[in-house]
Design a binder for these strands. Structure first.
Lengths: 339, 339
DNA sequence: TAAATTTGGGGTAACGATAACCCAAACAAA
DNA sequence: TTTGTTTGGGTTATCGTTACCCCAAATTTA
């Protein structure tokens, strides 16, 4: 109502309501005894003035801000976006706001961002695949605020972690293709340096090698992008003997693979079956709907939130590792081989 | 090094360095005169202890947190993800961190979130399409922290805004299709209630009506999802006389449309041309690459950041409205009509 | 030599909210 | 009437940082 630059404080509310600051604070936080009449006057004053608590002050005093931070490499990748969404949902359920901060895979930024958040802006932190070195993680372990690592496969740490399995999920996908009669199964890898991508590739190699079906020539480098999948698949499709199925290290990669197959005039799954990984929302919306391996991001987010809450409650969480199995979701992009 | 629960403060650093808190503060902020020797001792102590400034305290004192907040309906939508990415990039360039908060299109949440952020956690706010009512926006206008509205088309406000045009962009797309000889042009709308979707539809109607080509039967309801586009397109493809082109209100919708066309055994663009809207990253990565209307999100983010910086510098920004033209990007999904 | 300036650094208070404690008044019990 | 208890609410101190002001020593200037 007055100056645009006049932040409204407890004192303003107290003055208008004719009580002390403490009474206002107690009213808003439901601590202490307040008579009904006073409570109403206070609430009216709060509403009239449009007062909102200053989280910085509350945090400084030792209280909570009600904000959790999430540090994530990027948002444009559907998988990360989905992880962020799940975490925000869970946080919201638990009465927290989730602020998502991207690092653009830049270690310095990652570190700076986390430092800022820990510096009183957030009550806790969800850190997705930090590339951080050991010293950095050590410094995180010392932090006052609870921290949970998500999908971390790097250096050892005592910080609690939540992970999704990649190895067994990939294995299930390959076994599915084998059971459909496929023998020449191509693979488009994920980005170099991704530990999850490495796990998926390892699984592919081991399962096929065990069957005597491993052909290194059927492995092509992707990068988790659609274009990467497209180009890798195009190479596979120029082989003298075509693969009858292609396993892509991510759903987005699989979309590129499907594009390439269709571009070549072939059909999915009639000519070539395709399996993805992640089960991003789009996977079930494309045509043919994508057979893929689902990372249980919702369950992971739930577990991560629980760890945060446990830490708030001073339960011991150090060295906790919760790993979720991934699950094969069979849709329309895979089919028994044509005889 | 010591207790895990011992946040390190200026006082700790000061003690180790053998100086006062103020000297440490001055050193870190480059204010005041500090001798070279003292500076080095302080910096060493900071590094040894792993000190990070407590942003809450700094904010309370009247300083900046270095964090900007962005409030956005959701993250899973590629368009919003792209807007968030652009904003984060720009913020980063200007030395800020950007925390992204989703509202899940829930007005209460939106309001609560913004309140929290304004309460000392963020120095400024980028608010994307708030569904807020007038009273709420009024309360935002009173805020101490700078706020910029992005793509807001709702109730009037004095808050500075950055927008992307939808009307002219859609017009350019339709004119493009007309110039290619298309006369039966289908339209798949966006979500009900989206002001941008409404603009695009209005443009479609007006341009085609002006040519005497408007056929309400060629308009189908979408919802900005791929499935929505798929189903709407399937309806269009069952018309006795097929459209030769389909304009989708978003790229994601267009992907669904393309799926439906291919599913029907038809080809894009040979049988039916498709145009999207937004130019999300995937648009250029699919095959055929999507002809679409680009929203200049990077430029918008840049303008929004500039407004925030201007507000910091006490320049007047009230009632500023910056509108960016959208731009037709012609790729492979459109083609002259077959004769 | 005395006065003025610079250099380097510290003391104090304040930002806004709240936990812990305290204090009146009103009422009940003995 | 006296003591004890509840009710309703205020006082004080504190979180970590920094703006403002002050002070002592060193150096320069008159």
């Amino acid at each position: 109502m007055l100056m645009p630059n006049s932040p409204i404080t407890l004192a303003d509310v107290a003055r208008l309501a004719g009580v002390s600051k403490i009474t206002v604070s107690k009213t808003l936080n439901n601590t202490g005894r307040i008579s009904e009449g006073t409570r109403e006057r206070v609430l009216k004053a709060v509403s009239d003035l449009g007062y909102v608590v200053n989280s910085a002050a509350r945090s400084l005093r030792g209280g909570k801000t009600g904000v959790l931070g999430m540090v994530i490499p990027e948002l444009v990748s559907p998988y990360f976006a989905e992880v962020a969404r799940a975490a925000a949902d869970e946080a919201s359920q638990c009465g927290f706001d989730l602020g998502v901060f991207t690092t653009s895979r830049d270690v310095t930024k990652e570190r700076a961002r986390i430092g800022t958040l820990l510096g009183g802006l957030a009550d806790g932190l969800l850190v997705v695949v930090p590339s951080g070195n050991e010293k950095f993680l050590l410094s995180l372990e010392r932090s006052r605020a609870p921290i949970v690592l998500i999908n971390h496969f790097g250096v050892q740490t005592h910080l609690p972690m939540v992970r999704a399995d990649s190895y067994l999920g990939a294995k299930a996908a390959i076994l599915h293709l084998l059971s459909l009669g496929h023998r020449r199964i191509g693979f488009v890898t994920g980005a170099v340096g991704s530990s999850q991508a490495a796990e998926r590739l390892r699984s592919y190699r081991e399962v096929l090698a065990a069957q005597g079906l491993l052909d290194e020539n059927l492995i092509r480098q992707g990068n988790f992008t659609q274009r990467g999948g497209f180009e890798a698949a195009r190479e596979l499709l120029e082989l003298p003997e075509l693969p009858t199925a292609i396993f892509a290290a991510s759903d987005v990669t699989a979309f590129g693979v499907i594009d390439a197959i269709k571009d070549k005039g072939l059909r999915v799954p009639d000519d070539i079956s395709v399996v993805g990984f992640d089960d991003i929302p789009a996977a079930s919306q494309v045509h043919p709907a994508l057979t893929t391996v689902r990372h249980p991001v919702q369950a992971m987010a739930q577990a991560a939130m629980q760890l945060i809450l446990d830490a708030f409650a001073d339960k011991p969480v150090r060295d906790t590792l919760i790993e979720f199995p991934s699950e094969l979701v069979i849709r329309e992009s895979t089919k028994a081989i044509n005889l």
